[in-house]
Design a protein around this nucleic acid. Structure first.
Ligand code: ZN
Ligand code: ZN
Ligand code: ZN
Ligand code: ZN
Lengths: 144, 144
DNA sequence: GGCTTGATGTTATACAGTAACATGCGTTCC
DNA sequence: GGAACGCATGTTACTGTATAACATCAAGCC
């Protein structure tokens, strides 16, 4: 799926969810798509300013929040950043793997494997909600 | 284990690891212990200032970093905060459960249950390192 | 037109974290 | 004792992250 296809699918996705992928939101999403891996809000802000002159933090944060809400992006807490989700259509629980060495990020589906954790949480009287985990480790290239 | 016992055990723990729980570090740890659940760096800073007048962010951050390194605290990325670990003696991988409603935090051991995730990661050519997960959900009281 | 609603613009500020350099203070070595 | 070292702490200043609060705008409805 290339960038244009993605944007089109994203637009449809939002409509189906009863909200609009406005021009601004689309532009922000596009800026995020241009990067590999994790992108930071202020990076997006800088890019946006290059394209449309004035722009302040709230503009970017609002758009990013919207995109996360729609499932188009995931927030990566540990890095204060965001990554694109390329399977936003399906309900999914994923594990976001961040390489400690090179910083590369990948997302893998993990619905089933989470059941073990759910059981443990339940045993502690705690009901896990929907999760997108962020875990660190070493990618193939960096493992040696 | 009460606060004093904890501090004493922490001191011993540091010594065994070849470093010192200095007066300052101990004081910071004590301030964190006073709170229930997640504490933020600037909250600790404010508390510290009440007790010893002047104090700047680096003072607190250095102490917190040290305590995390020694395993006495865990950092909670999603909340920019810290929690006390009350079983710092043993090598452990834990799951930190944060209630979405009341904010209460608990830590449960989860070594075994992580194996499922390890397998999935490995299938994606990714080697998970030691984890302390932070997951959200609902605690018993808030579940209704 | 007048009204409502949601998106965006604008300003200012709060919160989080770190770089860089100065100071103090025990330990070691002579 | 005194020089030299290593580490913890103090201090200043700054960068980076995020939000509050209020103003404006545009589309849809009556
Ligand atoms: Zn996803
Ligand atoms: Zn790597
Ligand atoms: Zn722990
Ligand atoms: Zn709760």
């Amino acid at each position: 799926m290339n960038s244009n296809q993605y944007l089109q699918a994203a637009e449809l996705h939002c409509e189906r969810r009863g909200c609009k992928l406005t021009a601004l939101r689309k532009q922000v999403l596009e800026l995020v798509l241009r990067h590999e891996g994790v992108v930071k809000a202020y990076q997006v802000l800088a890019d946006l300013q290059k394209e449309r002159g004035a722009a302040a933090p709230p503009t970017v944060y609002r758009a990013l929040d919207f995109l996360v809400e729609q499932g188009l992006l995931h927030r990566v807490d540990a890095l204060n950043g965001f990554i694109v989700c390329d399977h936003f259509e399906c309900q999914h629980e994923s594990m976001i793997l961040v390489c400690e060495t090179c910083g590369k990020v990948q997302e893998v589906d993990v619905m089933a494997a989470l059941n073990g954790l759910r059981d443990v949480a339940q045993a502690a009287d705690f009901t896990l909600s929907h999760q997108n985990l962020m875990l660190t480790g070493l990618c193939k290239a960096c493992r040696v």
